[in-house]
Design a protein around this nucleic acid. Structure first.
Lengths: 150, 150
DNA sequence: GTATTGTATGAACAACTGTTCATATGTTCA
DNA sequence: TGAACATATGAACAGTTGTTCATACAATAC
């Protein structure tokens, strides 16, 4: 944990600036909301669900068929996405159609894809997450490490 | 898992559309890259780090002081963020300064905050993640549940 | 060289998460 | 009403993640 006497006492440490920045930080509530939302987006299955829904409204069953997932898995994920208002349900008989809740989501996707692709340009040959190659399912504590190459 | 004979055979199931959408889906590599990036953003500590850095370049020690975190915790998280090119290090003697890697990140933050706040407007009184109130640290498998109220 | 200091990293542990299986809920049709 | 079917949900398990502690690395000062 952080202790006040643990602060390094270099000249660079500008305590004034530190407390200035600290008081300008985003409110904890918003931080948590941001993290929750990004967390929901931070799973391949959910990314795929939203990607599929970007092509238009789909019922749970169609969604499962499109993504080749079990109905249960899709339903569980939809529940999560629904809770964060990333998707919206519409009931029609016994079928429930889901659609993207608003336009922000696709905008966020586009922005982030831009960031990712930009990095791929720069670091060509460096292999970062998402180069299309067959990957060993990026695993524990080494996911975004600086230098992996097995 | 998904089995082909598990497809519900309603009229709504449009197998043509299903395969049409499937072939239009974002490539697996990009999906993974998106998920990895969102995953990195999906943690309060990392959100706070990026938020702090949005006020300008900071050394690890200052960052720890601003956020009241241990140097080790900050360093571990910076490593992750660095791997995804969300932050960029600059060495000056023994001090390493970190800054946001590009402008996309803040743009993504803004978009997402907009989404979150928009939802708060609509669902006023419904309590979604991030309303500023003291929360019991939103826990396991119930994080974004549809109907919570204890 | 050694001491000092800022940063990085490995191991380990508790907490969290995504999927599956079994089952419940809700809607339509006979 | 009861059968059929689309969707939702609870429990449980394996896999993943964030923090801490101890320690290594790197750059400067002596």
């Amino acid at each position: 944990m952080f202790r006040d006497d643990d602060v390094c006492d270099l000249i660079q440490i500008d305590l004034v600036r530190v407390s200035a920045i600290r008081s300008a930080l985003t409110a904890p509530g918003s931080v948590q909301a941001l993290a929750d939302t990004f967390s929901a987006l931070g799973d391949p299955t959910r990314v795929r669900i939203l990607d599929a829904l970007s092509h238009g409204e789909l019922c749970v069953c169609d969604l499962a068929a499109v993504l080749r997932l079990s109905q249960s898995a899709v339903s569980h994920q939809l529940r999560l996405l629904r809770g964060l208002r990333l998707v919206r349900p519409r009931r029609d008989g016994r079928v429930v159609f889901y659609s993207l809740d608003d336009q922000h989501i696709m905008a966020i996707f586009r922005q982030t894809l831009q960031h990712v692709e930009e990095g791929q340009k720069q670091g060509a040959g460096k292999r970062e997450a998402g180069d299309g190659g067959p990957k060993p399912r990026a695993s524990a504590h080494a996911k975004a490490a600086g230098g992996r190459r097995r």
